[in-house]
Write a protein that binds this DNA or RNA. Structure first.
Lengths: 210, 210
DNA sequence: TGTACATCAGTGAACGCGCGTTCACTGATGTAC
DNA sequence: TGTACATCAGTGAACGCGCGTTCACTGATGTAC
């Protein structure tokens, strides 16, 4: 408490560094292509100052990934509770809409997550993999609750969640390079795909097989 | 024809360069981290010799991507014709199996495609995007043919194909970091997911909605 | 409240290194007469 | 068939540049008495 001023200043500088890195990734650049000096320059600092905030470049990258995971998580959590009551059809569309909003509000961070999911550093991969696993599990839980609330027979919620998340990430990637009109079209298609998945889950639950 | 020896030698050297680059990517490294000198050294050439085969590093990368696309395409084409007769249940499993085989036989190339699908160079992105689009279209065509051959009502084949490919790429990515036993488990799950998608397509075709 | 000391965010020089690309070259292969 | 010339895959030196990290430092902020 008494050391406030210095600590606060430090936290602020740390934020400036992360913001600077984020800005540099804005034009389609990947984390791997960011240089220490470049980030420092953008943040208005001497290159060596970064070492007062991150032990090395890997730690800086991990901080950026953590931030992206936080945004993903909070975007997807938004209005999650209300999903159970609105009925399956609307719930599916709103799920996709939430993901699209995240992709648009944090496009760089979305790209960061997808890129580093297969990146060179296993610390990055593990962090992202864990986050996606949580996302799948939470979605599966929501599906189970919603189905139970409607007194329907239990569906293969885990598989549905996995497929839906795969579809949405595919959507996010496809949306990166195209016009807004085409984006809407892609999002509608993805909505249909998730609906097909949910329908398929019901059939599966009823014992149907191919 | 008469200039054969020299041309043939050149083609062979070009192959050696691509092989060398492929070998260097074997330990989880990305295309972006490959250096000109490094590739040349691995290929047993002077660094500058690479310029006799590729105008710049971008062209080398594109050649690697082309090769990967070719392998993806031929892997997925393999046995494609027989899919119509075996019935939907087996066809779905074999589809996933073909993709898994590609992912295992050409793991580096699979990684290359997924990574560069969001890479910095738009030439790479376009190339890969076009290939995936073809893949989706061919799968959708197969689905339509198979459904027609069984006198079923037409399903939303394009949406099913998009969703199935998204699921399979998700599978391929998830398989990269895990044990063989876990890989089989993931592949089974993905098979279930694609089956759910196909079931959902039938419901959709019958006019069902959520 | 005033003073002496400790902490530590930020600095600038320096380290060795590999980057992609250019250039003028060498010498084997191919071509024309 | 022999000879003179053209082509061109491969070479080694050199270009300017930024990389991540280390180090000893400065000076403002915080702490203890």
């Amino acid at each position: 408490m008494s050391e406030g001023a210095r600590q606060q200043q430090k936290k602020q500088t740390r934020g400036r560094i992360l913001d600077a890195a984020g800005r540099l990734m804005a034009d389609g650049r990947g984390l791997d292509s960011l240089g220490l000096r470049e980030v420092a320059r953008e943040a208005g600092l001497a290159a060596t100052s970064l070492y007062n905030h991150f032990p090395d470049m890997e730690a800086l990258g991990l901080a950026l990934i953590d931030r992206a995971c936080f945004h993903l998580r909070s975007s997807m959590a938004e209005g999650r509770r209300s999903m159970i009551e609105v009925g399956a059809a609307r719930a599916v569309r709103e799920l996709v809409a939430r993901f699209v909003r995240f992709q648009q509000d944090y496009e760089n961070e979305f790209r960061l997550l997808v890129q580093q999911r297969l990146g060179r550093r296993s610390s990055y991969r593990r962090r992202i993999h864990g986050e996606l696993q949580l996302m799948v599990n939470e979605l599966a839980e929501d599906v189970r609750e919603a189905v139970a609330a409607q007194d329907r027979p239990p569906v293969p919620a885990q598989r549905e969640a996995e497929a839906a998340i795969a579809v949405m990430f595919g959507l996010g990637i496809a949306m990166l390079d195209v016009s807004p009109a085409r984006r809407r079209e892609l999002a509608d298609n993805a909505g249909d795909q998730v609906e097909i998945i949910a329908l398929g889950g019901r059939c599966w639950a009823a014992g149907d097989r191919l």
